[in-house]
Computed example of a mutant assay.
Amino acid sequence: MFYRPEDGHGLPHNPWNAIIAPRPIAWISTRSTLGDNLAPYSFFSACAYSPPQLMFASTSTKPDRDTGKDTLAQIRETGVFCVNLVTPALTAPMNASSAPLAAGVSEFDVAGLTPAECETIACPRVAEAPASIECRMTQIVKLEGTANYLCTGVAVGIHIRPDCLVDGRYSPQDGYLARMGYQDYAAVRDVFELERPE
């Protein structure tokens, strides 16, 4: 099969985000004058080592926002955000936090999660998360399309839950949760080492 995206794929469901998978989930917490917000994003990746930087994309809108989602609006207002990582044990609250709630309604409350204060930024983080990355936004770039935005940030503080450090390595004991496309997710637990050639 070959298709040009502008012509359509002709399949019952769009294969695009299933082709590029698995993807880690950035569970992004923000705070603004309206309150705390928490939402998952799977167009997400680390993009630099030194200084450590990451990116995520916001790709839809809400009826009560002019552009983008609550996350993007709050980052624009404050210039900071926190990326919380997700394990299989946090699947249900992560999914609950994806509901299209009105701006100002806290997903922490709806999902039954514990907000904890960040150390370097004025923002909450998910206390239950295996790791949380406090970020200062470096840029928001408008992408092709109606509501597509790329947000980059530099890590200014990193939290790792003590039980997720094993022999000095980050290793959540119940594995990693990854987005697969469609309505599919994967619990990643089968990990192996592979050394690069010299």
Rank of each mutant, 00 (worst) to 15 (best):
D184G: 10
S29Q: 11
H159Y: 13
T152K: 09
E77H: 01
T30S: 14
V154S: 01
R136E: 04
A122Q: 12
A26T: 14
A46L: 05
P162I: 03
A21P: 04
E117T: 10
V141F: 04
T33C: 10
T67M: 09
I75A: 02
C123H: 02
L143C: 09
K142D: 13
A73S: 12
H9P: 07
A99V: 07
D109Q: 14
A96C: 01
S42Q: 04
C123F: 06
L194I: 06
T87A: 01
S45K: 07
G79W: 07
T87F: 00
Q53S: 15
C123L: 06
P24C: 09
E77G: 02
P100A: 13
P12C: 14
I140D: 02
P197H: 14
L143A: 08
G10T: 11
A96K: 08
M180S: 04
P115E: 06
I133V: 13
Y49L: 05
A155E: 02
Y185R: 14
L34K: 11
Q139T: 07
T71W: 09
G8K: 14
G10P: 08
E144N: 01
F81A: 01
P40M: 00
G35S: 10
G157T: 03
A57F: 02
Q183E: 12
R196Y: 12
P24E: 10
V191N: 00
T114A: 05
A129N: 04
V166K: 00
Y185N: 07
L113H: 04
T120S: 08
Q173H: 09
H159K: 00
G104Y: 05
A92H: 13
G35P: 06
T152Y: 04
G175L: 08
V105C: 05
I160V: 12
E6S: 12
A129W: 03
P197C: 12
R31A: 05
D167E: 14
S171Y: 13
A21R: 08
D190W: 15
S171M: 09
R65I: 06
E144I: 03
P100Y: 09
A129S: 14
G153A: 02
R125S: 00
R23H: 12
A99I: 10
V110E: 02
L113P: 01
T114D: 01
N148K: 09
P197W: 14
Y149E: 03
V110P: 02
G175M: 05
I19M: 14
Q74H: 15
E134W: 04
T33N: 11
R169V: 00
S60P: 00
S60R: 10
G8E: 09
I28Y: 07
S45C: 14
Y149L: 02
P130M: 10
M1H: 10
N37P: 15
D174I: 10
A96N: 03
T30I: 14
G104S: 11
G181A: 06
A187I: 10
R196A: 12
E134D: 08
N14K: 09
P124F: 03
T152R: 15
F81N: 00
G8L: 13
D7L: 15
Q74L: 12
S42P: 06
P51W: 04
P51K: 04
T114S: 08
D66G: 15
